[in-house]
């Protein structure tokens, strides 16, 4: 059995669920959906070969409310600054030491961080991610470290497979 097979099956199933969400459930469209999901899975395995990281469901569910709450805070912060009679921004750059090398995990972290309150990744090197911040007085580095740890629990490295 090829090591890619379990990944392919999981991704194929996810694409089929996405297909059903688009079109609803019916036999004839499900046949077309299987073709579409097969094509999508093939492209996905080519573009994103299965790596050592596995998504863990339980921490993902735990991360979700935290992410939603952070989104709310982020939107609120923007609204607060936007409607303030005088601009209260204290923008600046902060270099964050990432625990992960450049790659998928770090990109996922950067993408999530771009939706968090007051942070926007705008550059990186081997060890650091450079963040642009709306308010440099906030404890940004601690927040980011918390976020990265929470994400690392979801996308855990598993030596096997």
């Amino acid at each position: 059995m090829s090591p890619a097979l379990p990944t392919a099956l999981v991704r194929g199933a996810l694409f089929l669920v996405f297909w059903s969400a688009l079109i609803g459930l019916s036999v004839s469209s499900l046949i077309v959906g299987i073709v579409a999901a097969a094509g999508a899975t093939r492209a996905s395995l080519y573009l994103l070969p299965p790596g050592p990281q596995r998504v863990r469901l339980l921490p993902l569910v735990a991360l979700l409310p935290r992410f939603l709450w952070q989104s709310l805070l982020a939107g609120w912060e923007v609204a607060r600054h936007a409607f303030a009679p005088r601009l209260t921004l204290r923008p600046g750059f902060v270099a964050y030491q990432s625990a992960h090398p450049p790659g998928r995990l770090r990109n996922t972290f950067a993408t999530i961080a771009s939706l968090l309150p007051g942070t926007l990744p705008c550059g990186e090197n081997e060890r650091e991610i450079l963040f642009h911040c709306l308010d440099v007085d906030q404890p940004i580095l601690e927040q980011l470290a918390d976020e990265e740890r929470a994400l690392a629990r979801v996308l855990a490295d598993s030596g096997d497979v």
Partner: peptide, 8 residues
């Protein structure tokens, strides 16, 4: 910042 966070 304004665009991404508020749109999300």
């Amino acid at each position: 910042h304004a665009l991404t966070k508020a749109d999300n």
